[in-house]
Design a protein around this nucleic acid. Structure first.
Length: 712
DNA sequence: GCGATCAGGT
DNA sequence: CACACCTGATCGC
């Protein structure tokens, strides 16, 4: 939960995501997204009164957020005071004090935040420096590098302060499976269930909040089944969503809710009341989206866990993981960083300790360090990174940080006047607390402390777990599409003229799974050919076809019998690369008696998997990393780059009982031990020892090996 | 009666 | 552990 007070130090005349107390006097308001914890005071009588007496006070937000907000009558009084700003379009705003007439100009740019529909970050540029307020965000690694408007020319802008979503800023949330992985896992589970009979239905146990829409849309698009929801009038001007949801209960996917929907479910009743169709009782499974995370040493990517006979949890996160946060911040490298959220068990100090080393103010106060190992490591894995322990070694190479956006458009953007070389400007403002006391040692300790994974979660309705201790691993198989930015209803050029109709197309289409083509390419599977899933009801133990399994070893779901505490205990998990997969006779999987199943996983595009990196197409990393991909036009580009990653899939073969082959077990071991190996940069070669020695010497002498290398 | 806050639930 | 809510009780105006 955000505990951001509403104001940034540099521009106290604006209030963001808080509308009570001192914020009542703001000259302008900003709303990053439509979640209640960011709307405190937004409909309070005090603010309402202020609006009534003012012509100047405005609320700035994205077109989608405006639309969602105004759908509720409670916020209708804002109508005349909301200004929808197009995403990624720098806009000049005059902040006028209505009593004194005092005026201050700032430029604001909305950047996609990937948190929920309409969610944005705010980039403010003005006389007091450049400030980034992230709101809540989920951005994949490398996403910041792809945001043109965070750059000035080829370099990252000089950002004074970042007000950061630190929800998962704790090493224990090191890795959260990517949006695409999660989506795919859910898709395959839903597909396998709903294809059994028309009476097999799925209830998506979603919270009452925006953010699941892209899931609904992808499921609907892939499966041709609309999703039942309680309400859809808020989407009335968002045809891309509207088309995929319905208020007709006669559908196989439900995301409807009821105050006591868990009770409904236990009574084999959907929250909307449906319990049978044409006299035939429904077979309902529930899938509850929840955050799953994995510690730094574990890179499991199974995104579905079976928690009971007909209950599942699916990985789903609205917020960036620890490593994503660090990637983001270390790319931006602001002078200051301020956490907006206190993460789970964390204290502000702890968060600050983690984040400060990624800021410029931190390193500037220190003597230059000699960290040859860090530099080399970093150089080697540039762009790869899921397992980046930047903390362990400093990374001077990142100071060569400007990543160049794919196409460098030569448009004349109004480039922030006030943001010259003021890096030294506000050092005092709250920077002082950045006592550089943190040592790398202590950071390292933090890392090692972290849990390996979240065996978690617990809470709630897990009465399901009692009957059967089953876990399903459904692994995702999606290439890393890097399409998060589309989450925000980026308006296409064509639609810019019509500000009232936010463009959902961009986001949702881009998130659309390309799997149909890719998996077809990669899997000799019957499921692909015409969707004949040929799933069978699993027999043993459970009578009523609760177990799903892919008979033909296509990508798919699968079941095993294991401890109920989820995704941590994967004794029977075997990971193999797709290369190996090709050599594998799939007959070992998914055959009747043993519950062997094949699941497909994918290590997000660029990271790890030394084996797979060997044979993945050379251009892959680059195309992925530099794809700007945030508008309609880029979709095809993305498709292309995704196609490149298609081969990277790993297969997870999990056998339920003793049917695993020793051979596979071996492979699994080697896999897990290599999780942290540093993947090769596509066209890099491993330095020879003598070369290394040479480089070390150069580094020790404080010379720059980067240019050196280039020159070579 | 309304809103703010808290406790408790999912 | 939290997410992002919702409901209900209590308190102050």
């Amino acid at each position: 939960m955000s505990r951001f007070g509403g104001r940034v130090r540099e521009y106290p005349a604006v209030s963001i995501d808080r509308f009570d107390r001192d914020n009542l006097r703001a000259r302008a308001y900003f709303l990053s997204h439509c979640h209640k914890d960011h709307m405190k005071g937004l409909r309070a009588p005090a603010l309402k009164r202020r609006l009534e007496g003012s012509l100047k006070v405005k609320l700035y937000c994205s077109p989608v957020t405006k639309e969602l907000l105004l759908t509720s009558w409670k916020y209708k009084f804002w109508e005349k005071h909301i200004v929808a700003l197009e995403v990624e379009t720098p806009t000049q705003i005059s902040l006028v004090d209505e009593t004194s007439g005092e005026k201050e100009d700032i430029e604001v740019t909305l950047l996609p935040a990937g948190h929920c529909p309409g969610s944005v970050m705010f980039l403010f540029e003005g006389g007091n420096g450049t400030v980034l307020y992230t709101g809540d965000f989920r951005l994949a690694k490398g996403e910041a590098a792809r945001m043109e408007l965070l750059h000035s020319g080829t370099r990252v802008k000089d950002i004074q302060s970042v007000y950061l979503d630190t929800t998962f800023c704790d090493p224990k949330f090191y890795h959260i499976p990517s949006r695409e992985e999660c989506l795919n896992g859910i898709l395959e589970l839903v597909r396998s269930w709903t294809s059994l009979t028309p009476y097999h239905v799925v209830w998506l146990n979603c919270k009452a909040a925006y953010g699941y829409e892209y899931l609904f849309i992808n499921l609907s698009e892939e499966l041709g089944i609309k999703v039942h929801v309680n309400k859809l009038d808020m989407f009335r001007n968002m045809p891309e969503i509207l088309y995929h949801v319905t208020t007709d209960r006669h559908t196989q996917i439900h995301a409807c809710r009821h105050p006591r929907d868990d009770d409904c479910f236990r009574g084999n009743r959907l929250p909307c009341g449906m319990t049978c169709q044409n006299g035939t009782p429904l077979h309902i499974i529930s899938i509850k989206p929840s955050t799953m995370w994995f510690g730094e040493r574990i890179k499991k990517t199974n995104v579905i866990v079976r928690t009971g006979e007909s209950t599942y949890r699916a990985c789903f996160s609205f917020h960036s993981s620890y490593s994503e946060i660090k990637d983001f911040l270390s790319y931006i490298r602001p002078v200051n960083v301020y956490p907006n959220v206190l993460p789970v068990g964390g204290t502000e100090d702890k968060v600050v300790e983690i984040l400060k080393p990624l800021c410029r103010s931190y390193r500037r106060n220190l003597e230059p360090r000699y960290k040859p190992l860090g530099t080399l490591k970093r150089a080697h894995k540039r762009d790869s990174s899921d397992t980046d322990e930047d903390d362990l070694f400093d990374t001077e190479l990142t100071s060569a940080r400007p990543k160049i956006p794919k196409q460098q458009r030569e448009e004349s953007r109004p480039c922030s006047p006030g943001q010259s070389e003021n890096a030294e400007g506000n050092v005092n403002e709250g920077t002082e607390s950045y006592k550089a006391t943190t040592t790398y040692t202590s950071l390292k300790a933090d890392f090692l402390d972290c849990e390996e994974s979240n065996d978690d979660d617990d809470d709630e309705d897990d009465d399901e777990e009692e009957s059967e201790k089953n876990i399903v691993e459904v692994l995702s198989c999606e290439p890393d599409a890097t399409s998060v930015s589309h989450f925000n209803g980026v308006t296409s050029d064509e639609q810019e003229s019509n500000a009232d109709v936010p463009c959902w197309d961009a986001f949702f289409k881009c998130n659309k799974l390309e799997e149909s083509s890719e998996n077809e390419d990669n899997f000799p599977s019957s499921a692909d050919a015409g969707g004949s899933q040929s799933l069978f009801s699993d027999s043993d133990g459970v009578s009523d076809s609760t177990h799903i399994c892919s008979q033909n070893s296509s990508q798919s779901t699968h079941i095993s019998e294991q401890g109920s505490q989820g995704w941590d205990s994967q004794i029977d998990t075997v990971l193999i690369t797709s290369q190996e997969r090709n050599a594998l006779d799939f007959s070992c999987c998914g055959k009747g008696g043993s519950r062997a199943v094949v699941s497909v996983s994918q290590e997000t595009g660029k990271d790890s998997q030394p084996d797979s990196s060997r044979w993945k197409p050379l251009g892959q990393n680059r195309s992925g990393a530099y794809d700007v991909g945030c508008d309609l036009e880029s979709k095809d580009t993305e498709k292309a780059s995704e196609a490149g990653t298609a081969h990277m899939q790993d297969v997870l073969v999990e056998t339920g009982d003793n049917s695993r082959t020793p051979d596979l077990e071996l492979r699994r071991d080697s896999q897990s031990s290599s999780d942290f190996e540093i993947p090769s940069t596509p066209d890099a070669e491993v330095p020879q020892p003598d070369k290394l020695h040479y480089l070390y010497k150069k580094l020790a002498a404080g010379e720059n090996i980067l240019n050196e290398k280039k020159a070579t």
